[in-house]
Design a protein around this nucleic acid. Structure first.
Length: 1003
RNA sequence: GGGCGAGUGGCGUAAUUGGUAAACGCGCCAGUCUUAGGAACUGGUGGGGAAACCCGUGGGAGUUCAAGUCUCCCCUCGCCCACCA
């Protein structure tokens, strides 16, 4: 046998495969299809490190098996080359981005080509190719030309909206649009000017122009999406790319109304097989919350005249009785509207400016202290009880979420509580925990009696112990407890009780422990169920001076001091123990509504609905997710195919004139002023073209559809191709795209489904994330740490097959693991041993005695097949190593058994298996061979070994026939000396027999 | 602070989903063959113990004939979100 020379073998087969186009995808086929896709890369200038191909190898293994299983497999690759990374690279190296991209693509392809990936390169796409971005522009125009109909729950052409306006105005149209869009009648619509109509439609379009506070990155000279901004080392926001500072700025922008799809983006997650954490990240990002919008009347304090109303958004309408003030975002329009009535208007405006300045740095810091200013001279009325409460503006309320105003309930909201503490605002508890005593639960049929009680927690500061009563008639010890008389203050009641029962009279009041606690128990001696509403009152003992105690009290209990943890029989106690040593805080859980008029006693859930209804509140759904900014002030992106004429009217570039190609410019440096470099190209501005370009995610939001029919000149892809390929069956890529690409492409796909192009609502049926390969030092692989391992070197030393096997064998596919220069040797040895196994091949059929590996081989076929489907590649490789170990033990290996083994190894190590396949005399290529099926007869074991346990401990092993019964096994077990040893003189109490697994004798 | 996830030999990891913990690989030890071995092959390799046996999946409790796996509490680490009312 020849020596295994990976270089010659791999080069030879790569050339052969490419020449014969063995990976060519059939355009139309009667075969079942399988679409296996990698997230296409930014062709960065740095070249690949060994971590990059991990995902590509994973999907390649999958695609290769599917191909062998007879599927028509679409497994393409392409380049996402617009956007910041490519442009930054070009700027740094002072070459034109177009040229840089071409160069980088070349490097990339050379590096990929040596790994033996089975792409159909004829379907390559590149987002910067005018023939590609023509369709990105085309889709943009479709989105621009659409509105969202919430009745049909899909996008509709804008013309249909115009027709509705002409017929009935906009009042009764169920559409997603800008908040506070004024109503108009059909007649009013018709009387509007072109420009006015344009402005109205802009509030409805799914791609629209607007002004917004955006993340402005001066260094990069562009606006960034929220997910492109990360926290820097000092906690300040910086750009994900480059780590440059990011500030807030008001700017004219193009947006995508992704919020119209928020609900579908959430519900669709239940229909796809994605990693649960990615789904969860998307759900959180979209941040759906259902609540109520409740209006508070505003009035002038001095003149008592009404000043209109303010709407707040809350998810806790059950706490409305606990609202003790209202907070507006500093930017709330009411601040200006009410300015004539605000007595301290200059202070308010000063604060507003301060906040906006601070804004630029970090307003999103949840840990910093809250600030705010009261709007003096005005107040609002709580709609549920008519109470007048003050109004504040504060930086902890965001203008961009909900209504930009909140009702503050310090007792039940952490942020409100913190603010209330600082500004000495009242805290009103209206939701209380409800406890049912486990020792003396209420008895059915007995009368319920309400009682108001106190628990006095009297601490002796010298000892840290608490004052307790040891009951003489009952076997328990309690704190001082007692009833609160009608109209009595709980603190006074507690003082009184302590004095009456223990004589201590000099108590320093510390605090009450939050709100009351409701506890239900049975008072056996009175045959009563009691509902106690208890206040915990904390005192410190000032001195030991005591009053006289009555005989009656003395007979009842004895005074004692105990640590709190030793006081037991009392339902409310767990609540007090939780509260006693921590500072007072808001009570967040749901519970029983308290001190809330007619709603008192309801559960939070019921009270929410009832209170909202009572005050005429509107049930609404809000989302954290904002509409996506769809513009970059940069050169290297798709031009937005719109122009503005001299009347200020926006014109679409005609479909047949697409692509609107990016002009060549002398300088593509960002201007730094917020204007795109295109703004200084006179040929461009002369025609009134939009100077912003599309963001990086535009081209990547639909590329998976283009691969289906990449050269189509009439559309994004033919109807036939779109319908044959449908959706991506298996999508592989990094988890870092969870809130970017994976959300935007779902959005675009849903839109394209709405307009009848995409076939499915969800573009990616299955998704798997490859874990990142770290440097040998465990850090992220990067030039900075000098820990980059280049795949070229690995391929040169060990070969592509070894690299592939090792990357799949390292550990679970999704796990991030450090590269190991030592462990890879194991994979190389495996390949070499496979190579040497070739020497044992015989074309003479083996007798059952000779064929010792038969059983293992067929089990392995089954396991590898299952493992590839579930992406458990590490155990698939392990199974093949076990099979190889068995086959090596055999004197000879039957040729067709060797072929079976080569077939299942082929997706992992395509080159060496192809070479050995040919060595066996085959004229065909393994690539197109059929995937083997495990023979169930051959998988069956002749004999199996099971564990014999005594009382659950393994004391021996026994060989049995499969399917042996308990009796049959016991017969064998009882004569085993090592088992008899344990059984002599013992009575067998029980035998547990698990078929084909173990037998456990309990003595 | 909130959400999600993970802790198993010297190392990467595996465990049929409650059934012989450590498969497979790396490393290490011994041997074979070699002029040599940082090659290859064969065997061994969780800890303690002379042995019988005992201990062992971050720590503690519990359920069970049986727990890495289930339940509760605690500790540590990773990722995501972070004033979203």
């Amino acid at each position: 046998m020849k020596r295994y020379n990976h270089t010659t073998i791999e080069k030879k087969w790569q050339k052969e495969w490419s020449k014969k186009k063995v990976y060519r995808t059939e355009d139309s086929s009667t075969k079942k299809k399988q679409y296996v896709l990698d997230m296409f890369p930014y062709p960065s200038g740095a070249g690949l490190h060994v971590g990059h191909p991990k995902g590509y190898i994973g999907s390649d293994v999958y695609a290769r098996m599917k191909r062998m299983q007879g599927f028509n497999v679409l497994h393409p690759m392409g380049y996402d080359a617009f956007g910041l990374p490519a442009e930054q690279y070009a700027l740094q190296h002072n070459i034109h981005p177009r040229k840089a991209v071409l160069e980088n693509v070349k490097t990339f392809e050379r590096q990929l080509s040596i790994i033996g990936l089975s792409y159909d390169w004829d379907r390559k796409v590149n987002t910067t190719d005018p023939e590609y971005y023509q369709w990105t522009q085309w889709i943009f125009l479709k989105i621009y030309g659409s509105w969202y109909d919430t009745t049909k729950d899909k996008a509709q052409p804008i013309e249909s909206l115009v027709k509705k306006f002409e017929k009935e105005g906009n009042k009764n149209i169920n559409a997603v649009c800008e908040e506070n869009t004024p109503h108009f009648t059909a007649a009013e619509w018709k009387s509007k000017s072109q420009k006015e109509k344009q402005d109205v439609l802009m509030k409805y379009r799914l791609a629209y122009e607007g002004y917004a506070e955006v993340n402005w990155c001066p260094e990069l000279g562009t606006v960034l999406a929220n997910d492109e901004v990360v926290d820097g080392p000092d906690g300040k926001p910086v750009s994900e790319r480059g780590g440059y500072p990011v500030e807030k700025k008001q700017m004219r922008q193009w947006f995508m109304r992704i919020t119209a799809y928020a609900d579908r983006l959430i519900s669709g997650l239940d229909t796809i097989d994605w990693p649960e954490n990615i789904k969860e990240i998307q759900r959180n990002w979209i941040g759906k919350s259902e609540g109520a919008e409740i209006k508070f009347q505003i009035s002038n304090l001095k003149f008592k005249n009404s000043l209109g109303e303010v709407a707040v958004f809350t998810t806790r309408a059950d706490t409305l009785f606990g609202a003790t003030y209202v907070v507006l975002a500093p930017e709330h329009p009411l601040v200006e509207k009410l300015s004539d009535h605000i007595e301290n208007i200059s202070e308010v405006l000063e604060y507003k400016i301060l906040v906006q300045k601070k804004d630029a740095e970090s307003r999103t810091d949840a840990t910093k202290e809250k600030t705010g200013v009261e709007l003096k001279g005005v107040s609002v009325q709580n709609p549920v009880n008519g109470e007048k409460i003050p109004v504040y503006i504060a930086d902890y309320v965001l203008a961009s979420y909900g209504t930009g105003a909140v009702m503050a309930v310090p007792a039940h909201d952490e942020r409100d509580f913190e603010f209330a503490q600082k500004y000495k605002l009242p805290v009103k508890h209206v939701v209380i925990p409800s406890i049912i005593d486990t020792m003396f639960p209420p008895v059915e049929g007995q009368e319920y009696v309400d009682r108001h009680t106190i628990h006095a927690l009297v601490k002796n500061p010298k000892t840290g112990l608490y004052l307790c009563l040891k009951w003489k008639q009952f076997p328990w010890t309690t704190l001082v407890v007692g009833g609160v008389d009608e109209g009595e203050d709980p603190v006074d009641a507690a003082r009184r009780e302590v004095q009456e029962e223990t004589g201590y009279k000099n108590l320093k009041f510390v605090r009450t422990l939050g709100g009351v606690v409701k506890a239900q128990y049975n008072a056996a001696h009175k045959k009563q169920n009691r509902v106690a509403f208890t206040t915990g009152v904390v005192f410190e003992l000032e001195n030991e001076e005591r009053e006289h105690i009555t005989e009656e009290e003395l007979a009842k209990f004895e005074v004692t001091w105990l640590p709190l943890s030793q006081v037991k029989p009392c339902a409310e106690l767990p609540e007090w123990i939780d509260r006693i040593d921590v500072p007072e805080k808001a009570y967040l859980p749901y519970g029983t509504v308290h001190d809330s008029g007619e709603f008192t006693g309801m559960t939070s859930e019921d009270a929410k609905k009832a209170i909202t209804q009572k005050v005429g509140g509107k049930i609404v759904t809000k989302y954290k997710m904002r509409n996506a900014i769809f513009a970059r002030q940069r050169y290297w992106g798709e031009p937005i195919p719109l122009s503005t004429d001299k009347d200020g009217l926006i014109q679409e570039v005609e479909e047949k004139k697409l692509p609107l190609t990016l002009p060549n410019v002398a300088s593509y440096q960002p201007t730094g002023t917020g204007e795109s470099p295109l703004a200084s190209v006179s040929s461009w501005t002369k025609k009134g073209y939009e100077t912003n370009t599309m963001p990086g995610w535009a081209g990547s939001s639909w590329y998976f559809l283009r691969y289906m029919d990449p050269k189509n000149k009439k559309g994004i892809a033919s109807k036939k191709a779109l319908s044959y390929w449908g959706q991506v069956d298996m999508y592989v890529g990094g988890a870092e795209h969870a809130t970017g690409h994976l959300l935007y492409s779902r959005f675009w796909n849903k839109f394209l489904k709405d307009i009848g192009l995409a076939k499915f609502d969800e573009p990616f049926k299955r998704l798997r994330n490859q874990g990142m390969i770290q440097g040998t030092d465990g850090r992220k692989m990067s030039k900075r740490w000098g820990n980059v391992v280049n795949p070229d070197d690995v391929v040169k030393t060990y070969g592509a097959d070894t690299l592939r096997v090792y990357e799949m064998f390292m550990g679970p596919f999704e796990a991030g693991l450090p590269w190991s220069t030592e462990n890879i040797i194991g994979s190389r040895r495996f390949i070499e041993r496979v190579w040497r196994l070739g020497e044992k091949v015989t074309s003479k059929k083996l007798t059952p005695e000779e064929n010792v590996y038969q059983n293992t081989l067929h089990k392995t076929i089954q396991k590898v097949t299952d493992d590839i489907v579930s992406f458990s590649y590490n155990t698939a490789v392990s199974a093949m190593m076990i099979a190889l170990n068995e086959m090596e033990k055999s004197e000879k290996v039957y040729k067709s058994d060797m072929e079976l083994f080569l077939k299942i190894l082929h997706p992992f190590a395509p080159h060496v298996t192809e070479e050995l396949w040919k060595e066996l005399g085959n004229k065909t290529s393994l690539v197109k061979e059929s995937w083997p099926k495990a023979d169930p007869k051959k998988m069956r074991d002749a004999e199996i070994t099971i564990a014999v346990q005594i009382n659950g401990k393994v004391r021996g092993e026994v060989k049995i026939q499969p399917e042996n019964t308990e009796t049959e096994v016991l017969e064998k077990v009882y004569i085993m000396p090592e088992i008899q040893k344990w059984l002599t003189g013992q009575e067998v109490r029980k035998v547990i027999f698990v078929k084909n697994r173990l037998i456990n004798i309990v003595i």
